[in-house]
Design a protein around this nucleic acid. Structure first.
Lengths: 172, 172
DNA sequence: CAGTCAGTTCAATTTGTCTTGAACATGATG
DNA sequence: CATCATGTTCAAGACAAATTGAACTGACTG
């Protein structure tokens, strides 16, 4: 069976993209990698960041050459995190999306949605650990107690540092 | 076909683990998830964190029930990041590992190895983007310029915030 | 209503990452 | 040296996450 070269399998999706947009998308795809966020989300945000008018889903699909499902899911995530907002466009019942560009809101949403819930669980793990502290072999009990104390300190620190951090980011 | 329950597929690897150790490992596996670090690395660090004596690779393998390759690679990562150090144990030519427990070193190493390099690249992406700014359609040039300015501000902020952040973490 | 349009959902597939295990160093030991 | 002990590397396989596409929901329209 003959393999079709990948580059020909989709019609060049970025034909409609300006160089500025392409580089923007690049940049945000790279950013997404750092945060372990799906590539498609980086692409979508990058495109919106680089586009002056709000775009409907369809436009995103065809300019990026990704599926409707991906765009729908990606936009949901971006909405939840507050990285994107839907704006009304008169005479068009489709939703149109534009990028939220305030670092405060971006970082804030990301931390609130992605990190805070985990930190909450972190507390649960810690308390379950603390329960074991009593059951530990006497010879090790001091060691265990120290380690637990240290963990509690870390936890308290992160929980407190988050809002502080957000305040600093807010001043940009 | 009858499915073998996953819990029986490996001989219970944690037979040699205390409750304290198990909960510690749990906690760090969870932490690893947050940072998108491989589970096995969380397990290894968790075990070392919960163990008073330095452990050789072999002990880690059998207590966690993971392969030699995984442990070797996991330890390398942890060493590079400074989360673990090899200590000499007299009369034993094997390397013995113990956990580094200072948040300053952990966070510092992680940021230095995992984040900083990315930020460096970030600068490259940004400058390539800036090049496109001139080529952009006149009608959009002001929009593009604004967005680029904003990105540069973000970038400058993160680059400067990193050492500051580390200084704060250092005081814990 | 039947028919379109906009958007969501989710099972199946694709893609990418982690883990394994066997082969390969390296170096100590008799 | 041959052998054993310790540790690394890497291709192949197992696993997990992202993406697709088709089926679906609901809402508007003539």
């Amino acid at each position: 069976m003959i393999e079709v070269p990948k580059s020909e399998m989709r019609p060049a999706p970025d034909s409609a993209l300006s160089g500025f947009q392409r580089e923007c998308i690049n940049l945000f795809v790279h950013g997404a990698q750092i945060l372990s966020i799906p590539r498609s989300i980086g692409e979508i945000y990058g495109l919106l960041y680089a586009t002056a008018e709000p775009l409907p889903m369809e436009a995103i699909m065809e300019r990026l050459g990704i599926s409707k499902g991906s765009v729908s899911q990606g936009l949901r995530w971006l909405r939840e995190v507050g990285a994107v907002r839907a704006t009304y466009v008169k005479g068009d019942r489709r939703d149109h999306y534009e990028a939220e560009t305030e670092l405060r809101k971006l970082a804030g949403g990301f931390l609130r949605e992605q990190i805070e819930p985990h930190l909450g669980n972190g507390g649960d793990y810690l308390s379950r650990l603390a329960l074991e502290a009593d059951r530990v072999h006497p010879a090790e009990s001091q060691f265990a107690a120290e380690r637990i104390t240290k963990l509690k300190r870390w936890h308290r620190f992160t929980v407190r540092a988050l809002p502080l951090f957000l305040r600093i980011v807010g001043r940009i």
